[in-house]
Design a protein around this nucleic acid. Structure first.
Lengths: 192, 192
DNA sequence: ATTTGACTATTATTGTTTTTCAGTACAAAG
DNA sequence: CTTTGTACTGAAAAACAATAATAGTCAAAT
């Protein structure tokens, strides 16, 4: 078995278990056992449990960005379509990145400092994508905005972040979902 | 000392202590001691600790509704002005109703069933006020909405609720506040 | 270079004892 | 009618100690 296969196996099992039981209630022994690897192997590939968790979360982040990038670069969509699709995709994809949310749910958000780094890194990334969509809309004369593009994208992020908690933590995904499109419509109409 | 003075004294001390330490970590003995009343007096006026807490929360609810009602019935404001002021006032006033938030913060939201009643009662109340503002705006031809008034007010509530968590639990009041007005502007512009 | 499983020091869990606390009872007094 | 103080109970929580689980190491094997 090649080195990468072991690594990937560990990561995939860790992803599943962390996602199901959270960081605390998943032991390295359990990961090792289910991945059919010796615990020593885990520590050969990852310096610590926290580092393994970080890598799992980072992989989920790559997944999120990839899905959202596909929306941003979809040339078949208008700027308006991109904004709407972005919101929907974000909500959808966030529902499945369980490890990313685990730290938020478990009270101590800042227990891992790297979560702060990842989060703020994503904030910067997301802001740039939204700015790019909005600018595209302005260039194509789809949007006629009065506010600063930067402020506008911050607003969008604020609303989307605000929705994360009722959607996932409080489990109102199904309850709220039907309104997302109408909400996006209002906001976008306000930019026309 | 009149009967109501004792009652009020107990309520005011309970409000302070519950707000500071939460329901669990505030004892009836402590309330009695600080209010300079005998514990028997507390149970003469309130059947149980939970009932006392309920009354404290209900009082906060009255406070919230009173502040928001003032906005809704302020004849000097346009419908647009009312919507903006409503959002700002709601965020502002929520910051100080600590007991109302206590149950949200402490994980078990539905620990007290009466909280659910109070919350959903407020939801109904709030929806009606927003509908009334929006209808007023439509009548005065300030707004030209395409969506159902009811759905629109739900949207507003959704956004405002979404903001509660980052604002109070995650303490981003100061960080987000400057953007509220711009956000309200966009949404309102989308209704014109 | 990788993988392994026994080994240790630390942390978490469990079970037990002690203390705290909600709620009651009541006699006395304003 | 309202308030007080004291004493009480049963149930829940805090403190503590014994036990088990687990993060991380390492020497030997592949």
């Amino acid at each position: 078995m090649k080195i990468n296969e072991t690594r990937e196996k560990i990561l995939s099992v860790a992803d599943r278990l962390f996602g199901r039981f959270g960081f605390q209630k998943t032991s390295m022994d359990e990961i090792a056992k289910i991945a059919r690897k010796a615990k020593g192997s885990l520590y050969y590939h990852f310096p610590s449990k926290e580092d393994l968790f970080r890598e799992v979360v980072q992989n989920e982040m790559v997944e999120i960005k990839s899905k959202l990038s596909a929306v941003v670069s979809n040339s078949e969509l208008s700027a308006e379509g991109k904004l709407k699709k972005y919101m929907l995709t974000r909500l959808e994809v966030m529902q499945y990145v369980t490890n990313y949310h685990e730290t938020i749910q478990s009270g101590e958000i800042d227990h891992f400092e790297f979560m702060g780094d990842i989060r703020s890194g994503f904030d910067v990334w997301e802001k740039q994508r939204l700015i790019s969509i909005i600018n595209e809309g302005v260039e194509r004369e789809e949007f006629h905005i009065e506010l600063n593009t930067e402020v506008l994208s911050e607003m969008f992020i604020m609303i989307m972040k605000g929705l994360e908690i009722p959607f996932f933590i409080q489990g109102k995904y199904r309850e709220y979902l039907p309104h997302i499109d109408g909400m996006a419509n209002i906001i976008i109409k306000g930019m026309k």
